[in-house]
Design a binder for these strands. Structure first.
Length: 416
RNA sequence: GCGGGUGUAGCUCAGUUGGUUAGAGCGCCAGAUUGUGAUUCUGGAAGUCGCCGGUUCAAUCCCGGUCACUCGCCCCA
């Protein structure tokens, strides 16, 4: 029989990794709450249209990366490849325009049919933050401050740099795009194969090309910043001033772009050099045009997503809290089982971690307790019970004391 | 989707220039120790050498395909 394998690009999360994930999500929830965001969990699948409409038919995600399937009713459903589309859909479904601004956070699995690599899975997990209904640059600043706080509390600020850019408003961006198309079309013959395709689908992406020949062309290409109108320039300046005020370091990267039409103004990525080709750890931007594409009322939006797997690769293990050291319950002889159960229950109710020892002679039980990193063992034997006492063994110094059942909980409170 | 690398025990890895019973360390189980852990000693289980096919008297080793992982590209978190 062939080895039972998980589906390509999926993983079981357990042990240290599970603990690291939990730590990251806990820090994230705490910070997001401090920033005034509320949790939202949207379904992990939606009608396919939710994603195909928002992401655009020509985008890579829609054209080759979606996990789509028909349900029994013949509806085309898709496992979510990203969080934003679902949140925007939820906003419209629930009529939340009545309660703007909406500040959301969420986390969970995402699905993309990609060729797996380290830091890139078919099922992966993201943290997500969105602010809907704030057209002011203050939202951009806050969302970036949230990101910076998260990365700093995860101990990653030294591993990561913030790259930021502005696409300008619609007017500025379209003017720049036209100029780019004109420029690159004139130099079509020197463009690489990938970039030729981008010229049609997503011309701004050429700016980000890794092809050497393209890069030479890009150096002389029209610059986005030359096409900012006054409002766009003022907006970007205000965002940068906010970052300066908060002492958040950044690098302006004019090649950092978003292709789809509903993006505008701020685009940013926190990047690390420690993860090979998958260097983007957290990324986002402003998407003021998205709500309308979805059929909702014109509503500004900005947000970001971070890959939990990628963060987990970077987080130092010593930051992740270990499991609490348990107290081992060691009954000796079958007559002591009931008392052992009761003591375990008492301990757990009082907030201790208690590990019940299930089988074996005493040496075996002690061995297991030691392996579980127990801080102490409660040894429950017939001799002791006859005198209404138990023996407490301290695993760190090897000392033993007899404690009366009455005093047990009191005594063990020292072991927290 | 495109190109390169890798695949031997639960884990980390040796090894066989193609030859009969494939090894180590760690881990696991048991015993020394039926009321006392970490150390020590002894023993044990565990592998269709990723899978399928080809070449060969003979394949874990060579060849082809396939699956998975991995590195880069595309794209992205």
């Amino acid at each position: 029989m062939a080895k039972l394998q998980p589906v390509r690009g999926t993983h079981d999360i357990m042990g240290d990794q599970a603990r690291t994930f939990q730590f990251i999500q806990g820090v994230f929830q705490d910070i997001a709450t401090r920033f005034g965001h509320q949790e939202i969990s949207t379904p992990i699948f939606e009608f396919t249209e939710v994603f195909s409409r928002t992401l655009g038919e020509t985008s890579d995600v829609v054209s080759k990366e979606m996990y789509s399937f028909e349900d029994r009713g013949g509806e085309s459903l898709t496992l979510r490849p990203e969080y934003t589309a679902g949140i925007v859909r939820a906003f419209i479904s629930n009529g939340l325009q009545q309660s703007l601004p909406c500040k959301f956070f969420g986390s969970g699995p995402m699905f993309r049919y990609e060729r797996p690599q380290k830091g890139r899975m078919r099922q992966f997990h993201q943290l997500d933050v969105e602010i809907l209904g704030v057209a002011e640059p203050q939202a951009d600043i806050e969302v970036l401050a949230l990101a910076a706080t998260l990365l700093s509390e995860l101990g990653l600020m030294d591993d990561v740099t913030l790259e930021i850019n502005s696409l300008g408003d619609t007017e500025s961006r379209l003017a720049n795009r036209d100029a780019l198309v004109t420029y690159f079309t004139a130099h079509k013959s020197s463009l690489g194969e990938d970039s030729l395709a981008r010229l049609k689908k997503n011309p701004m992406r050429i700016l980000d090309s890794k092809d050497e020949g393209d890069r030479a062309l890009v150096a002389d290409a029209p610059r986005i910043s030359d096409y900012y109108n006054q409002a766009s320039k003022a907006f970007f300046d205000e965002v940068l001033a906010g970052l300066d005020a908060l002492n958040i370091k950044y690098v302006i990267n004019e090649r950092l772009v978003r292709g789809l039409d509903y993006y505008s103004h701020t685009a940013f990525e926190f990047i690390t050099s420690k993860l090979g080709a998958q260097g983007t750890v957290l990324a986002g931007g402003r998407y003021d045009g998205l709500m309308e594409i979805m059929g909702g009322p014109p509503t500004a939006g900005i947000g970001w997503a971070a890959g939990i797997e990628r963060l987990a690769e970077l987080v130092s293990p010593d930051l992740v809290p270990g499991e609490p050291r348990p107290i081992a319950i060691v009954p000796v002889g079958s007559d002591c089982q009931e008392q052992a159960l009761k003591i375990a229950q008492q301990l757990r109710t009082a907030g201790h971690a208690a590990h019940m020892s299930y089988r074996g002679n005493m040496a075996k039980r002690m061995k297991r307790a030691n392996k579980a990193d127990a801080i102490a063992a409660v040894i429950i034997g017939e001799d002791e019970l006859a005198r209404a006492v138990v023996t407490i063994k301290n695993f760190d110094d090897g000392s033993q004391t007899e404690v009366s059942l009455d005093q047990l909980m009191n005594h063990l409170s020292h072991y927290r």
